[in-house]
Simulated scan of single mutants.
Amino acid sequence: MVGDSGYVQARQTPRGRKVLVGLSTASVYPENAEAAFRYAAELGYDGVELMVWAESVSQDIGAVAALVRKYAMPVQAIHTPCLLISQRVWGADPVAKLDRSVRTAEALGATSVVVHPPFRWQRRYAEGFSDQVAALEERSDVIVAVENMFPMRADGFFGSKERSAERLRRRGGPGAALSAFSPSYDPTDSGHAHYTLDLSHTATAGMDAMKLAERMGSGLAHLHLADGRGASMDEHLIPGHGGQPCAEVCRHLVDSGFEGQAVIEINTQNARTRRERASMLGQALAFAREHLGTGRATSGSARSRPGGDHDDT
């Protein structure tokens, strides 16, 4: 539906009815945001999480609203431009960027903003981060969900992903590592009202995902559903293709009456064709539907949807 701002608002689902499963626009890289909306519509996702980064469309409310209308696919969440590669997107001030992310979410009808903990070198931002998050939630209905991250591991500078994953398994943790985040890559160390749980990040950090979910408690409002083997680099595998307790976390959320959103955030860069990428995104959605009890996913083949046909190149 169209809200007072003139932009298409997210479809509302009655509380407790089902967990909405969205697709992160980052999951289709190196394709663009429009491709993510198209895949989401074809495969039967409930919406998208918009990663704001260098692509101009991702930074433009009007352009995104046009995609919402074209594909009948709402924006569930906004991911603040807080990656290392997006440090200059929407300017250099992270305080202003977080504020703008919430205003963008309001304009597009998204109910959540995902943000990483501040980097250590962002001292002013880090000092006021908890207060800013709390103040933004006080002034808005948008949830600001702080995401768990991972340290920079020494074994990331040598060897393969497989070897680093094996080293983590043998050690029972990441070994020598340095956190780039302040005060920690674990947001529960600071305490916030709402959190995003990322299951690829728990793998890289060597964290117990179930224990982290329990520490987040009722504040767990957003799930990045992916997987990892414990490699030193963030993998974002299809859930069920790594070593994380993805199914157990999903069941825990269902059993605890989770009222937040789940978003598929996987790496499909190795897909050689659009058909192969669609298959990967379809597998991830099927896993989410099965373990979150949200109904059956459509098959990986394209179905009728607004916006034209889908090719295999």
Rank of each mutant, 00 (worst) to 15 (best):
185 Y>S: 07
180 A>F: 13
3 G>D: 12
10 A>H: 10
228 G>D: 12
162 E>I: 14
248 E>F: 14
173 G>H: 02
168 L>H: 09
166 E>T: 03
87 Q>N: 11
197 L>I: 07
155 D>A: 07
305 R>S: 09
62 G>Y: 12
91 G>R: 00
150 F>R: 10
123 R>V: 14
230 G>H: 00
193 A>G: 15
97 K>A: 05
189 D>G: 14
149 M>F: 05
293 G>C: 12
10 A>N: 07
81 P>M: 05
143 I>D: 15
288 A>G: 01
7 Y>S: 02
53 W>R: 15
190 S>V: 12
43 L>Y: 01
301 S>A: 15
37 F>I: 00
14 P>G: 13
159 G>K: 00
20 L>V: 08
84 L>I: 12
67 L>Q: 08
311 D>K: 11
109 G>K: 09
279 S>V: 12
199 L>Y: 05
287 F>K: 08
86 S>V: 11
272 R>E: 03
76 Q>M: 15
223 L>R: 10
203 A>H: 06
29 Y>T: 13
118 P>E: 01
42 E>D: 14
20 L>T: 06
262 A>C: 10
148 N>W: 06
141 D>N: 14
61 I>L: 10
18 K>C: 12
299 S>V: 09
163 R>H: 12
38 R>T: 03
231 A>N: 10
306 P>Y: 02
255 D>E: 14
115 V>R: 02
273 T>P: 01
173 G>N: 01
220 L>F: 06
167 R>V: 03
190 S>Y: 05
277 R>W: 03
287 F>N: 00
34 E>H: 08
165 A>M: 04
270 N>A: 15
42 E>V: 15
88 R>E: 13
178 L>Y: 14
307 G>K: 00
6 G>W: 08
306 P>T: 02
167 R>M: 11
92 A>M: 14
185 Y>A: 01
82 C>A: 15
39 Y>M: 04
160 S>R: 02
139 R>V: 11
90 W>C: 00
89 V>G: 13
136 L>I: 02
10 A>S: 10
268 T>M: 04
98 L>F: 05
27 S>K: 11
226 A>F: 02
285 L>V: 04
305 R>N: 06
177 A>Y: 00
209 A>M: 04
307 G>F: 07
85 I>H: 14
238 I>C: 04
310 H>D: 12
46 D>V: 06
140 S>A: 06
139 R>F: 10
271 A>R: 02
226 A>G: 09
144 V>Q: 05
200 S>D: 01
285 L>M: 07
248 E>M: 14
216 M>V: 12
176 A>L: 13
51 M>A: 15
171 R>W: 09
128 G>K: 08
93 D>R: 04
24 S>M: 03
290 E>S: 00
12 Q>M: 14
312 D>R: 02
55 E>F: 01
63 A>D: 06
84 L>G: 12
133 V>C: 00
168 L>V: 05
1 M>C: 15
128 G>H: 05
245 P>Q: 07
211 K>R: 04
22 G>A: 10
171 R>D: 08
238 I>H: 05
170 R>W: 03
300 G>S: 01
228 G>N: 11
238 I>T: 10
272 R>I: 06
74 P>E: 09
24 S>Y: 01
183 P>T: 03
115 V>A: 11
134 A>H: 08
157 F>D: 07
184 S>A: 05
17 R>I: 12
103 R>C: 11
185 Y>K: 06
224 H>C: 07
